[in-house]
Design a protein around this nucleic acid. Structure first.
Lengths: 251, 251
DNA sequence: GGCCAACATTCCGTATTATGGAGTATAAAT
DNA sequence: ATTTATACTCCATAATACGGAATGTTGGCC
């Protein structure tokens, strides 16, 4: 066509992935016209791509001719989760054993944070984190640890595209403030978050350096239990876990 | 090229999906040469496709340059699971409430069976089924109910490609015997399975007719509790659930 | 530490392949 | 029954993906 100064990639594959993601974002179901409108591509093109995906079970066609996410995605998602999760879960469990609070492993997926590993604390009151859940990174300690691994320009792009919804009064909603804070995260090698996601919840996260994709390990718990002493005690434990995870995920 | 009388689809998209599936089957990691060898395509072609998938986070590159499944697949798998699961879980829970044994919803994904919905029985001894898990269909009541919806030729293809490993002495390992049994499943509209997957476990499944993709609902429990009386009682309950699920998944 | 082999990556001319405008079929709406 | 909206098919065109050849990289071996 005309203006594309991109490093490119295979066009039709990119378009097919766009379709899957559009349907996901639309809540799991879309009509052909809707996909066509949302992507700006003509209907025959969309139809051909969609047909390919349906044949392969990545999408399925509903009785009313609309299209929905297909069953093939489920085992693949599981396998991807295992690739991160199963290798890290014993290490996260070890963190929980030593610290007593819930531990998570998070990755960056596009502009969002996705939890790829998890070990719950043996407590009645604890964070409930769903594996595979994807959330905004700006209000998570793990998100800060992840974004600290990128340069400021990329971070601003993520914040702009993904937005910075305020989940509590303490949530940082200003990109400049957030970028400033990343500088100290980089300096200390540790990210903190106090009540920015949910009131009364405090988190602490470390980047997993030298790993395949950007990752971060975190612990989270009620502010009352996440004392300064506990956090100081937790940092070396998390650091050790982060190093082990980097090794594990290398192959 | 030469001989392909297939209904086609977009070539490059199909190849990209092949790559994802190859890596999945290989246990989550593959080198470029391996993918090239396994797919029969030249390395530059593979490389270009892989690059596209890496850019989009569907794959990731390990430090040793090998390729692994990427984080993007995780939320998509979750979303696909929800599309089936969340809409069916309350219905499955209702089945459990009325029958007292674990209920599952299964779909056919290629040659394998994948669990897309689940409600555990309120019992200490119960089936443990992982959502998204994929298993061979030949030794499951739900598998029989699913395959009964296909014609015999397709069934034989699935059995040949996927194989029929014997999990217990009772597992059916002969395609002819299996296909014969499907005839009575079609006639009765109900599939039974006694100890073919695990000794002492009995299952009962019904196809979900008129649904988007092929689905089946099943209950499973210890043979001692899955009496003839219970099964007779369960059939209308499962039939009702199947009809409701078909409606729910239509949109 | 330098050499070699294996693998990953980039280049680029070619034609196969995806593209999308025009047209047809199908379903829902009135 | 007629209209309208959407899904699906055809097919000539050229843009796009292709893959052979050449170049970088990396890790193993002497």
């Amino acid at each position: 066509m005309a203006e594309h100064t991109r490093p490119a990639g295979v066009q039709s594959v990119g378009r097919a992935l766009d379709i899957i993601e559009l349907i996901d974002q639309a809540g799991g179901e879309m009509a052909l016209v809707e996909i066509s409108a949302a992507s700006g591509l003509p209907m025959p093109t969309i139809h051909r791509l969609v047909r390919t995906l349906v044949d392969r079970n990545y999408l399925r066609q509903l009785p009313d001719r609309r299209y929905a996410l297909g069953a093939r995605l489920i085992p693949l998602g599981n396998a991807a989760l295992d690739a991160f999760g199963s290798r890290s879960s014993s290490l996260l469990a070890e963190v929980v054993r030593r610290i007593g609070e819930s531990a998570n492993l998070a990755a960056l997926d596009g502009d969002m944070l996705v939890y790829v590993g998890q070990a719950p604390a043996p407590r009645a009151m604890r964070m409930f984190t769903q594996l595979g859940q994807h959330v905004h990174p700006h209000c998570r300690a793990a998100g800060k640890a992840l974004l600290a691994q990128l340069d400021d320009e990329q971070v601003r792009g993520i914040l702009t595209r993904g937005g910075m919804p305020a989940l509590t009064p303490a949530t940082i909603t200003d990109p400049d403030t957030f970028v400033d804070q990343l500088a100290s995260v980089r300096a200390e090698g540790v990210a903190h978050e106090v009540g920015e996601m949910e009131e009364g919840v405090t988190c602490l996260a470390l980047p997993v350096l030298g790993a395949t994709s950007n990752l971060a390990v975190s612990i989270s718990g009620p502010a009352s239990r996440m004392t300064e002493t506990l956090q100081q005690h937790a940092i070396p434990v998390l650091r050790e876990a982060a190093e082990e995870i980097a090794v594990q995920l290398a192959g």
